[in-house]
Amino acid sequence: MSRILFDLALADEAVRPSPYCWTVKFALLHKGLQFETKTVPFADKSKYPDPKYGLVPVLVDNDEMVKDSAAIALWLDRKYPQNPLVATKSERAAADFYAAWLAASVYPALRPYLTIRVHAAAADADKPYFRATRESRFGVTLEELAASCRPENVESALAVLAAPLTHHRYLGGAAPNLCDYLVIGPFMWQRAVTTSDFYKTPEPVAQWRERMLDLYGGYGRGAKSAEAA
């Protein structure tokens, strides 16, 4: 059986910054499915399984290609119903909430600090593309974006997690589910460029993150950071 997840890499190919790819990797591990990753650069779209699409994650499972982390999660539960990522409609609704919350608060709060550091750690061939596309998307230079970093914005966003994680080991309850794999994504994005927090992490969130890093034989904890590259 061939199951390949296409994943972004920085100058050191062992450093994988994509939070959405990390969500899929944790989902595959949750399912107990073997897979390999194949790295692609930011700029050279000819290296992608679908050059016209030109994004990751893309999962190729034998002769099936599935694009986008949300679509991959849904497909995995249909294709491999064992160990569901979301077992009920309520869990699906919770996952939809966390996805929307991340997009509205956590990613924007982390972006000023992390984007310029991902650029610094990217391969030289990728840096012009990375800079041009991000500056076009955000309407400011990477340096101006970095100057807008406010740790308190991250702290405010993460405070939302403190309440459920005070009472439960995981966002999924007693065991992790898709909610946890969505939320660990931006933490792994951060971990790709720094293993230190630039904000104060609520203690229940910090403890949850440690549990997540230890899952599946410490898969997340073993992720390489550009700090060590």
Results as ranks from 00 to 15, higher is better:
Cys179Gln: 08
Gly222Thr: 06
Thr166Val: 08
His119Ser: 08
Ala123Tyr: 02
Ala14Glu: 13
Ser225Gln: 09
Gly139Met: 13
Tyr107Leu: 08
Ala73Glu: 01
Ala9Phe: 03
Ala123Val: 05
Ser90Glu: 12
Glu155Tyr: 09
Leu33Phe: 00
Ala14Trp: 05
Ile4Tyr: 07
Gly172Tyr: 02
Phe130Glu: 11
Tyr113Asn: 09
Ala11Glu: 11
Gly54Met: 10
Lys47Gly: 14
Ala122Trp: 01
Phe187Gln: 03
Pro108Asn: 12
Asp214Gln: 12
Leu178Gly: 02
Thr115His: 12
Thr194Gln: 11
Gly222His: 07
Ala43Gln: 10
Pro17Met: 05
Gly139Pro: 05
Val160Leu: 14
Arg221Asp: 11
Arg92His: 09
Leu145Trp: 04
Arg117Val: 03
Asp96His: 04
Lys224Asn: 07
Trp189His: 14
Val86Asn: 04
Ser148Met: 03
Ala125Pro: 06
Pro176Asn: 05
Tyr199Gly: 04
Ala223Arg: 06
Cys179Pro: 03
Met65Pro: 13
Glu203Ala: 12
Gly222Trp: 05
Leu171Ala: 01
Val40Asn: 01
Ala87Leu: 05
Thr39Leu: 01
Ala121Asn: 00
Ala71Gly: 11
Ala87Phe: 07
Leu110Trp: 09
Lys67Trp: 03
Glu13Leu: 15
Val154Thr: 09
Ala70Tyr: 08
His168Tyr: 01
Ala192Ile: 06
Gly32Asn: 03
Leu8Ile: 12
Gln34His: 09
Ala157Tyr: 15
Leu165Cys: 01
Cys21His: 06
Cys149Pro: 04
Thr141Met: 14
Val193Asn: 08
Phe26Val: 01
Asp180Asn: 13
Leu161Cys: 04
Phe198Gln: 11
Ala175Tyr: 14
Leu59Gln: 04
Leu10Asp: 02
Thr23Leu: 09
Glu152Asp: 14
Phe138Val: 11
Leu74Val: 10
Arg16Pro: 02
Lys200Asp: 13
Leu8Lys: 08
Ala163Met: 00
Tyr216Ile: 01
Ala123Asp: 06
Tyr181Arg: 07
Leu74Ala: 12
Leu85Glu: 03
Phe130Tyr: 14
Gly222Met: 15
Ala99Val: 13
Asp214Pro: 13
Ala94Val: 05
His30Tyr: 01
Leu102His: 11
Lys89Val: 14
Ala120Asp: 04
Pro164Ser: 02
Asp7Glu: 14
Ala9Thr: 12
Ser148Phe: 02
Ala157Gly: 12
Thr88Val: 11
Ala94Met: 15
His167Ala: 15
Phe138Thr: 15
Lys89Glu: 09
Val58Lys: 05
Tyr98Gly: 02
Leu142Gln: 13
Arg111Asn: 14
Lys224Gln: 08
Lys224Ala: 13
Leu102Cys: 11
Ala121Met: 02
Pro41Ala: 10
Pro176Arg: 03
Leu165Ala: 00
Cys149Trp: 07
Gln82Tyr: 10
Val15Ile: 10
Thr166Trp: 00
Ala43Met: 02
Tyr199Thr: 15
Ser18Thr: 08
Ser225Leu: 12
Leu76Pro: 00
Val193Asp: 00
Leu215Trp: 06
Leu142Pro: 12
Val205Pro: 01
Thr166Phe: 00
Leu215Ala: 09
Ala157Cys: 14
His119Asp: 09
His167Tyr: 05
Phe26Pro: 00
Val106Pro: 09
Met1Glu: 12
Pro164Val: 00
Ala11Gln: 10
Leu145Gln: 15
Arg150Ser: 10
Cys149Glu: 05
Leu213Val: 10
Arg131Tyr: 15
Ile72Val: 01
Lys38Ile: 01
Ala228Tyr: 11
Thr201Ala: 11
Leu213Cys: 08
Pro112Glu: 01
